[in-house]
């Protein structure tokens, strides 16, 4: 589904990604971990080209998006849901409008279809009663569940999560992870950048360790956590577990 070849990204003089190669297949749940500043978020943001790579390529469902013109890129992005650390809900719109804005303005659905789809997704994330509220009236955990619902309304083929629980109070992390786990069980293809090792162990089909801009190790969660090979990963795991 997503093929990444020799992906490089530099911000000015600062090399963040130094050649990443990996393939993400349909139905996989890939969890990306690594020390802060290792480039894991940048890697994720290159997948839907919120960051433009400075080298290598990203191919999504057969289309090379690395140099794709904006118009076609936007069509690709419709198929890639993204959830941000800081939610980025639209504060001036009700929850329902947050969910329906994109499908309606992109003419993918009529307003009625979008409203119906939004209500379904709000029920799925357990926040149907908040449909007419505004984002600032919700807790962090609720906001993130709405952000997930907003991405799901678009019927994406893959969901990208950029540290979805890092900005949450501890007691709200659980509800978001539970929802992500539910999505995983339903067969959604997911790429998740996170510090939640428990989630990685439980849900991931594969765990990737990014360090200094390269994939230092990738494996099934059992092998990854049970039998880490590289010294850097051993050191990292000893700090976080």
């Amino acid at each position: 589904m997503i093929e990444v070849k020799g992906l490089k990204k530099a911000f000015g003089e600062n090399d963040v990604l130094n050649g990443i190669d990996t393939v993400i297949n349909k139905g996989e749940k890939v969890v990306v971990i690594g020390p802060s500043g290792s480039g894991k978020s940048t890697f994720l943001r290159c997948l839907n080209r919120l960051e433009t790579p400075t080298g290598g390529s990203v191919v999504f469902e057969g289309t090379d998006i690395t140099n794709l013109p904006e118009k076609q890129l936007n069509k690709i992005r419709e198929k890639m849901g993204m959830v941000f650390q800081h939610f980025h809900l639209f504060p001036h719109l009700t929850i329902r409008k947050n969910l329906t804005l994109a499908p309606v303005k992109l003419k993918l659905m009529t307003k009625e279809e979008a409203d119906k789809r939004a209500d379904e997704m709000l029920k799925k994330v357990g926040l149907f009663d908040k449909a007419d509220s505004y984002p600032d009236m919700l807790s962090g955990g609720q906001k993130q569940r709405i952000a997930i619902a907003r991405a799901l309304v678009m019927r994406p083929d893959v969901m990208l999560f950029d540290e979805p629980t890092s900005a949450l109070d501890p007691e709200m992390v659980g509800e978001v992870l539970a929802l992500m786990k539910q999505l995983a069980e339903e067969g959604m293809t997911m790429v998740v950048v996170t510090h939640e090792m428990g989630f990685a162990r439980e849900v991931a089909s594969r765990v990737i360790f990014i360090d200094e801009g390269v994939i230092a190790e990738e494996n099934t969660p059992e092998e990854f956590f049970g039998n880490p090979k590289s010294p850097r990963l051993k050191e990292f795991l000893s700090k976080v577990l």
Binding site: N74, K75, R77, F84, F90, K105
Partner: peptide, 23 residues
């Protein structure tokens, strides 16, 4: 306006002018 609002719009497939106008 936070840069994240532009990114949220872009991640949903909205182009720059639609993001500008509606968000």
């Amino acid at each position: 306006i936070d840069k994240g609002q532009f990114e949220a719009g872009a991640s949903l497939g909205l182009n720059y002018s639609k993001t500008m106008k509606h968000i």
